[in-house]
Amino acid sequence: MHPAFSVLIFTVVSGAGYGLIFLTILGHLSGLAVLQNQSLLLSSGVLSLVMISGGLLSSTLHLANPKNAWRAFSRFKTSWLSREAVFAILFYPFALLYLIGVWMQGAEIAAVFSLAGWVAAVLAMITLFCTSMIYASLKTIRQWNSALTPVSYLALGLMSGGVLLLMLQIMVDDTASDVLKNVALALLCVGVTVKVIYFFWIGKPSGSSIKTATGFTQASVRLLDQGHSSNGFLNNEFGYTVSANKLLRIRFLAVAVAFFLPMLLVCLSGPFALVIATLAMLAGLLAERWLFFAEARHVVRMFHGDQSV
């Protein structure tokens, strides 16, 4: 699949935002000591909203006819993209209400605000889940059509939220608490595990091949002519091809930069290290998300000559 930069930014940045706000609210409302700090909560809340909104805005950049974007709310009944849109919007009033509470009342907020907080946290995760289901629901792309997709979207969202939270703590509080450090490390471990499993899993052959695509299951099938000399929409959208070597290198790079480097830096602690850890992680996740697209192979490719996907 052609990795559209706007979509990479969207999923990574808003995923991190949802993860951040979820962890923040969860920690705060469940009484985690290090998260009873108003300025930390506020800065985390604002940062996540900025990231989420920025991501969502970025996602509209890939629309070819954005003037109809508002219509995306209408097919909640069946469309994960529509659901994502609906939940993303629903999230805002609750998240804002919660933040207003924190802003006005500090860490000790009234029930209505904490209720809003709980709802916002749940909506954040639901929205992230919807985003992942946009991809996971597509039977046409085997590399996405798996429970591993939502699991990894959620895990990586939470992971990036965890690292961001830790970094915010050291910026705002001048300290990096062990508990947040451990949370971040744990989430990094979960993240890397999920991703590595994913990388192994997508190596498995799929049931479809150029033979089932064309219906000639008894013999080899080769494309002679795709019917148009220059590439068209389908080639551009689905024909994105990167050499296996390059993919492998980027995999190593992504895993190192998104997971292991941050782990190391988190262990090192210190504000500088944690800023670098966050930036590295986000950069690594961009590479990971690029891979998510670049390694996804749409079945249409077989009509254009790929033997399998």
Binding site: L63, N65, P66, N68, K139, T140, F233, F238, F303
Partner: peptide, 24 residues
């Protein structure tokens, strides 16, 4: 109604949908 998100084209296994380059 279409906003040109391409999602339907992604969902189609048969390459039956193409985005209009002018109209989006």
């Amino acid at each position: 109604k279409c906003m040109g998100c391409n999602l339907c084209a992604w969902a189609c296994p048969y390459g039956a949908r193409e985005l209009d380059p002018n109209e989006g």
